[in-house]
């Protein structure tokens, strides 16, 4: 008899949380008995307190909003450019010949290496950070869109031609839907890079945002706020990932690998 599968759903759903909860308890105990100095790692309860204080003062919401706005604009601009360029180079041989080398060269420059230059160009204003995020998210979306378009099944395109589809229909009914799984993979990579870029950019030069909140706290040795900031980054990253998951399960219903029913 297999009792594992007959457990109610909510219990099996909770099993993933057993380890994290255990670790937090361990952490709480360790700080309580001062095995760990609160300078190194604050007690979990201190972090909760810091979260409450910052929420009440409105500082937390303001900083999250500032970060989210940068992330959003960067993703929108970089994602759009990457997507359009990927489409263009994937669809038209001439565009590919003309542009692909340039794109590959840009790709090989680590975008975070540009930070000193970005500070000179944009100062510490918003534009510099949005620019960095734009650079960060651009390439994964570009590469995966391009790849998705290039790997469309030529047999399906041939079939579409036999059935009288015009070039626009070929694109909208065959090439683009075929490339979507790959494009979504690109989006997921981009989201990861989006947060990473933002974390680095915000800790270096900024006047608002979660990264700045963490840097400020560091100067005053408020470890609880620093840890809180790290946790918020983790949470936002997880949120973005869940959003892509949701998109995938909606858009890729036809795909046996994504069917959730």
């Amino acid at each position: 008899m297999n009792t594992g599968s007959s457990l109610p759903r909510w219990i099996t759903g909770l099993t993933g949380w057993v380890l994290p909860v255990f670790l937090i308890i361990l952490w709480a105990v360790a700080t309580e008995y001062s095995w760990l100095s609160s300078q190194i790692l604050p007690a979990p309860i201190d972090i909760v307190r810091a979260a409450i204080n910052l929420t009440v003062s409105g500082e937390l919401a303001k900083n999250i909003a500032a970060s989210a706005e940068r992330a959003g604009w960067g993703l929108l601009i970089g994602g759009s450019i990457g997507f359009l360029l990927g489409l263009f180079n994937g669809l038209f041989r001439i565009a590919e010949r003309f542009l692909d080398t340039t794109v590959q060269m840009i790709r090989n420059v680590p975008h975070l290496a540009l930070i000193p230059l970005v500070i000179i160009w944009f100062g510490i204003g918003e534009a510099g950070k949005v620019f960095l995020v734009t650079l960060g998210v651009f390439f994964p979306i570009y590469a995966n869109t391009y790849h998705g378009i290039k790997t469309t099944d030529p047999q399906l395109i041939e079939m579409g031609r036999v059935y009288g589809l015009n070039p626009w229909q070929l694109f909208s009914q065959i090439i683009f839907p075929g490339a979507l799984p790959s494009i979504l993979v690109g989006l997921r990579y981009s989201l990861g890079l989006m947060w990473l870029t933002l974390i680095v950019a915000e800790t270096i030069a900024t006047t608002s945002g979660i990264g700045q909140m963490a840097m400020n706290a560091r100067e005053f040795m408020q470890t609880d706020v620093v840890v809180l900031a790290i946790m918020i980054y983790a949470l936002l990253g997880k949120l973005a990932d869940t959003a892509v998951h949701f998109l995938e399960s909606r858009i890729l219903q036809w795909h046996p690998g994504f069917r959730h029913r």
């Binding site: 047999q155 399906l156 059935y163 589809l165 009914q173 839907p177 979507l180 036809w254």
Partner: peptide, 22 residues
């Protein structure tokens, strides 16, 4: 019209929409 060795249906369209193609 051509029928190929493989069915060449579009996996992202439901059966009826595949028949509607073109």
């Amino acid at each position: 019209r051509v029928m190929f060795q493989e069915a060449r249906l579009l996996p992202w369209k439901r059966v009826l929409d595949n028949v509607c193609l073109g």
